[in-house]
């Protein structure tokens, strides 16, 4: 697993995710990275990566909407000017 710190360099995070608990893809997977978004500017997130944690919070067992909300809130909060993602290239069953 790799820790990627995405600085909030744009007004959007700019990733699309699929998956979550009780789906075929139990942990969220990055399916799109939008050009010009913070994630794209960061340059370290890639399509296909699985998101294990956001700011140290595990996504295991979270349904899609819950995981998406957690990521959205991490990006929205003014408490910090970055979001930490723990990602892996492998679709591990955790």
């Amino acid at each position: 697993a790799t820790l990627v710190r995405v600085a909030k360099t744009a007004s959007t995070l700019g990733i699309a995710i699929e998956g979550g608990a009780n789906t075929r893809q139990p942990l969220p997977r990055i399916v799109t990275i939008q050009r010009g978004g913070s994630a794209h500017n960061c340059g370290q997130l890639k399509v296909g990566q699985i998101i294990l944690e956001v700011n140290g919070v595990s996504l295991r067992g979270r349904e899609h909407r819950d995981a998406a909300r957690l990521i959205a809130e991490a990006f929205k909060t003014k408490d910090r000017d970055y979001v930490d993602f723990l990602v892996t290239e492998f679709n591990v069953a955790l």
Binding site: T12, L13, G14, I15, A16, I17, E18, G19, G20, N22, T23, R24, Q25, V31, T32, Q34, H64, R65, A68, I71, A72, F75
Partner: peptide, 16 residues
């Protein structure tokens, strides 16, 4: 006819 579900449903996609 009895249908057996072998796979979990697909997930929706959310743009963030």
């Amino acid at each position: 006819v009895r249908e057996k579900r072998l796979t979990l449903p697909p997930s929706e996609i959310t743009m963030l």
